[in-house]
C-alpha cells in the first residue's frame, strides 16, 4: 500500500507542497486524482480501475504510467 507522507496537500490548481522539506511541485489533474486516491488509502488495482473507467486509455498504458508515477513520488520522497 502506497502511503503519501503526512501533511502533504495538493491544491485544486495542482500545487503540491511538502512542509517537511519546503519542496513544491506541480501535478497534473490525473496525478492529483491519484495522489488523493492514495491518501484515501485506495489500493493500486482499485485506482487503476477508476482510471480505466474515467479515461480513454488502455490498461497496459495506464498501468505503466501509474507505476512510473509511483516511482516519481518515491523519488521526490513524498511517500513513506
Amino acid at each position: 500500500m502506497v502511503k503519501i507522507k503526512k501533511n502533504i496537500a495538493v491544491s485544486d490548481t495542482g500545487f503540491l507542497f511538502n512542509p517537511m522539506t519546503g519542496d513544491s511541485f506541480s501535478v497534473n489533474p490525473i496525478g492529483q486524482e491519484i495522489i488523493r486516491a492514495f491518501q484515501e488509502e485506495k489500493g493500486e488495482e482499485e485506482i487503476l480501475e477508476e482510471i480505466l473507467e474515467a479515461y480513454r486509455v488502455d490498461r497496459s498504458t495506464a498501468e505503466k504510467d501509474l507505476l512510473d508515477f509511483k516511482k516519481m513520488l518515491a523519488h521526490y520522497k513524498l511517500i513513506d
Binding site: 511541485f25 497534473n28 490525473i30 482510471i51 498504458t61 513520488l73
Partner: peptide
C-alpha cells in the same frame, strides 16, 4: 461510453 470518457494524459509530477 468510450466517448463519454475523458481524454487521457499520463500522471506527471514536476518539482517547481
Amino acid at each position: 461510453k468510450e466517448m463519454e470518457k475523458k481524454s487521457y494524459e499520463r500522471p506527471v509530477i514536476k518539482p517547481l
